[in-house]
Design a protein around this nucleic acid. Structure first.
Lengths: 332, 332
DNA sequence: CTGAAAGCGCTTACAG
DNA sequence: CTGAAAGCGCTTACAG
């Protein structure tokens, strides 16, 4: 098929067209006054030879990289939230001809982030769901690298963007309270995640609005594996709860499977609802009532924010950040 | 704390030290003859001012980018396989001071890959689990971009690296046959994925070795959601199977949940085993016998391959690609 | 052992 | 409207 072609540079074009490379550059960027037919000739040449400017060289000249760093916590990278988020981020980045540099943080956490900054490989950074006190935010502030955080932040100097976790959690809880449930358990994973704090707050909000007091004994955190889930499920039954709110779909899948194992009928004997609507919830037995966020939109927004900070002319408004309560059998 | 510091360039260092930038460059790279104490002085300066060479400029001068493109199919990016794989790839790339540029392919598939190549943003590319006829391989061949494929390939010109899916599938199936099972169902997702073809082959291998013939009526593909799984579970029971081999942990979780729903006891009435040991299998009810691969090692190997192709001096040997059968309750 | 110079592929004042 | 020149931050023959 198509013969693999020579990689043209701006110099080649200039020579072939008998103009200076300044002119070619301008014809391509559209900046500065330039003859209409000159532009046309360049355009035609570019078209025919499929010339694409070397973005790296372009970057060097403009002191840019056209790369965005995306920091993802390794332990949770498989969660639907991150998948959706990444999706949105990439989609938006590509529109502006930026690329996403991936950083999976682990124990060595800071090291990789630092490498990225030290090597001047990115123009800005998107931090996702930082663990409290991870130090990433402080590091980035000090290094003067523009960044945004996906997740809550109480630091006014930090641009943060997030799903409305607290509100959604409040609404989901409120829905259960309206059904007459009075002893709701709240079950979650890692308590040191900001997101879980927000969801807990929403849970409390709903209670307080109605003049109720959530029982602190019904809060169960750090449910991250099967064994822990079994113990928690036992405690929930002992405590005579009538409903369970799960902070995410992983926890929910674990708890539900424990309930089934113990022969506790959902929703007959126990109502169940969960934050974040991953596919595990819809296809579970029974399907679980949950909150659906537009996480992809969240990712796009985060990307737009940082692009804006980098001086890109944004082509769209931010998406409004909404959520829906998806009613399913588990709360009937 | 630490005052944010000026970004030094190699020129700054040269000036401050009263040498030429050639010398500084050489002191840093260690190439060419150079005075021992000159090196020491440079090193000290670098240390004190935390100078790091601008990798992008370095790249331009050497016609490199120090980026690797990683192509992930969007629909499946949340699967444990990709998580583990990415993990290994990133880890290895960082060791060589390369970064990973993320490309999530969707319907627009080729476009993003092309953008990466056209913009000269990467030195090489890692393709993961290509769908048959995705065209990525052909495109990369034509563009002369070095690449490796994670997943099987029958093209001798393509460097491919993969988990031993066929062998592992054979062994898992063999294990069930050895237990005396004779009507095994094979259940999987997308039939157009190479990986599923390999696993099917292994399933057949095991049968043929023993002189058996797998019943084509017991092959169920395209099981991707709950509804489909329910129907398949019905058919499996109607067909009087005595065991099920699942091609991946997603499918397995779906099928198992259907069996529970129908009150079919595993392992008493039906044995169940699965390829790929994701966390869903261990913490399921009952825990499911499965194959564990060293997918992280696979990722590292793939990364080492491509780095080798790019002329990097590899510091380790490739990992041996193994797997283990993890016996759990579902086949007892 | 060290340096001046050209180059990687682009951009952008400055001058005409 | 167009071009020569300097520059982005590095590397690398070439000469000494």
């Amino acid at each position: 098929m198509a013969q693999e072609r020579k990689k043209y540079t701006i110099d080649d074009i200039a020579r072939e067209l008998g103009v200076s490379k300044t002119t070619v550059s301008r014809a391509l960027s559209g900046k500065g006054r330039i003859g209409k037919d000159t532009v046309e000739r360049v355009r035609a040449f570019v078209e025919e030879h499929e010339y694409r400017p070397n973005r790296v060289a372009q970057g060097l000249a403009r002191s840019k990289t056209y790369n965005l760093g995306l920091v993802i916590p390794g332990e949770y990278s498989g969660m639907p939230f991150f998948r959706d988020c990444i999706d949105g981020i990439c989609q938006e980045a590509y529109r502006y001809n930026y690329d996403i540099l991936f950083v999976v943080t682990r124990e060595d956490g800071r090291a990789q982030l630092q490498r990225l900054v030290d090597n001047h490989k990115v123009d800005g950074i998107i931090l996702t769901r930082t663990v409290m006190n991870s130090g990433h935010v402080e590091f980035l502030k000090k290094s003067r690298m523009p960044f945004v955080v996906i997740g809550p932040s109480d630091d006014p100097e930090v641009t943060s963007i997030d799903n409305p976790n607290r509100e959604a959690s409040r609404e989901l809880t409120d829905f259960l309270l309206m059904k007459g449930l009075r002893r709701l358990a709240l079950v979650g994973g890692n308590a040191s995640h900001y997101v879980n704090r927000s969801r807990k707050r929403g849970f409390n909000d709903a209670h307080q609005e109605k003049g109720f007091h959530p029982d602190p004994a019904l809060l169960f955190m750090e449910v991250e594996d099967y064994r822990k889930a079994v113990r928690v499920a036992d405690q929930i039954m002992l405590a005579e709860c009538d409903g369970i709110v799960c902070m995410d779909e992983m926890v929910c899948a674990l708890i539900l499977s424990c309930l089934r194992e113990k022969g506790i009928a959902v929703p007959a004997r126990m109502k169940l609802a969960s934050m974040y609507d991953g596919s595990q919830l819809e296809s579970n037995l029974p399907p679980v009532t949950s909150i659906r966020f537009d996480t992809k939109g969240l990712g796009r927004n985060a990307c737009m924010e940082i692009l804006g900070m980098l001086g890109e002319e944004l082509r769209d408004d931010l998406f409004p950040m909404n959520y829906q309560v998806i009613l399913r059998e588990s709360t009937q």
